[in-house]
Design a protein around this nucleic acid. Sequence first.
DNA 1: ACCTGAACACCGTTCAAGT
DNA 2: ACCTGAACACCGTTCAAGT
Lengths: 208, 208
Amino acid sequence: MGRPPKFSRAQVQNAALVLVDQHGLDALTMRNVAAELGTGPMTLYGHVQDRADLEALVVDAVFSEVEIPTPAPDPATRIEDLCVAAWKVLRRHPHAARLTLTRRTDAPSALRLGELLAVELGTTTLTGRRLLVAFRVLLSLIVGSIESDLAPVDPGDDERRVSVTESDYPALAALSASSARTTPEQLFRDTVRAGLVGVLPQASPDNI
Amino acid sequence: MGRPPKFSRAQVQNAALVLVDQHGLDALTMRNVAAELGTGPMTLYGHVQDRADLEALVVDAVFSEVEIPTPAPDPATRIEDLCVAAWKVLRRHPHAARLTLTRRTDAPSALRLGELLAVELGTTTLTGRRLLVAFRVLLSLIVGSIESDLAPVDPGDDERRVSVTESDYPALAALSASSARTTPEQLFRDTVRAGLVGVLPQASPDNI
DNA sequence: ACCTGAACACCGTTCAAGT
DNA sequence: ACCTGAACACCGTTCAAGT
């Protein structure tokens, strides 16, 4: 407890992510993180600007875990793999994922991933508006799929939940039954492939 | 101030939505809503189960505003119009939209809209897994597009924002420049149409 | 029986006192 | 100069006192 600070910003980041993973997003408070590090709340302000900064740190930690896949031979598969890598890391941190859904992220690790995806799309024949649409479609599919999977995470919601099996929504009930017959990853891969078909002229619907 | 309650659940709902629209999501507190209605915080618990219930009320209010479009002749356009209707209403309430991104919604008005979309997709040749994927793609595109648009809503973020024009992310910068040349609605329509091409065998890429 | 104020256990952050 | 505890202005909700 001499001159050097008692802990680093990286330690704050790690403690925050562990807290969120283990006890949910509501547990992410200045006071809890400080307690985890064995100090008072005010000591945190030496490493973090404010609460929003703490949240940004968590988002950055999550995307830092993305394993960039080794490039597949064809562009469509490279793009798909990149999307799956992002999806996987968000799935591994469902509570933290909610942070990325709500606020726009400046986290360098997230921007780097976005840049990678944009570069990959740029190697296709897509340009201009169609390139932009392709990018937005893929980002949306990642974010949207995570959101769709997030339901069971919300605790206590189940008691209040109106079962979709109810005959009020027969079409939704049929979909929900059909979704019980796939794994989440398979469903996401199918979703991304469908998106690619709509977006890449050269992607053929055959491999779906 | 006699026997009948001083206000209805619908009034609570309305007061909550107005509060969120005007002062942002952080202003949505039991105490603020109560003050808006001229009572103490505890009186709210006569109409609302807890804070989560209050948020659900806001989400329901938003989706209740959806104007179901008059059905277009062809299925693809009917589906597109339905998606745009949902997108528009979320755009009109950007702060409240954040609630729908994070938590799974049981709001009847939202389920009814989902059911409508599922039914519409059911009138195509799609069945089983492909029907499910189509539904997920469209939902994801709505949710994801809203999320992408939400950035400027977050107040005070701009000061901290790392400009994407920075040369660290040239591909992202190019995309962002390209997105400045379209309207949000046009971009969303293009996005949905691309999604439909990937998802509906009979949708032709010609009309993009 | 119902409505609701006081009180409790939190929260982020300011401010000033400690070193 | 820097670190950090006390204090402030909030929050959702319990509990008990009022009618």
